[in-house]
Amino acid sequence: MMDIAIYSLVDDMVSKAGTEGVVEYWLRVGESYAERMGKEAYVGWPAFNVAMKDGRTSLTVEGAVSVQTDLAITDKDGDVIGYVYALKTCPISPTMERYISRIGPIPDSDTDVADSYNNRIRDSAVSNYCITHQKFREVAANNITVAKEALECLQLANKGMTGEVKMVPENLARINVDERHIKSILRNASCVFALIVKGKSAGEEIID
């Protein structure tokens, strides 16, 4: 029942703090959730990917994640710097289904908050919950090291309840993966993201 509270809570919060205020609340929740999960260290990518597959990492508390082992991301020297991952079921999806079945249509505030985030921060939210979820992943990834190097999470694409797809072209460019390939993964997943060594990219560029 706790999850169902989201929609009435967000509806109330929008009337009191505005859509921008709710975005800020959700960003802080994502950050504090990830911070409170603690740090993790893995000796290398195979160990990390097994942990992801087994659901043992802080990043897999959101649900089953499949590792796209055919999508290893390499740097200019050919060294593996990360992988692409697909979340099968969006964590808010069961809540949405239950809300629609038991209460009624999802309130407009859901889209209003998502739009506020998309217009001001990054165009990657298909529902208001994406805000906290994506922030959670970004902060949680920073708390994980693989071969003693901190990770960075790059949101690539996600799919909303109505089938609407959001892509983040700058992140796709950074890992040099084609949009069509990610769309094919989205046929059987709700969210696609990459985990790479912090600051690295598939090209020569080093990101600060």
Partner: peptide, 11 residues
């Protein structure tokens, strides 16, 4: 329909 605990905790 079971909720995802990830959402419950975040609320």
């Amino acid at each position: 329909i079971e909720s995802n605990p990830f959402v419950d905790v975040s609320v």
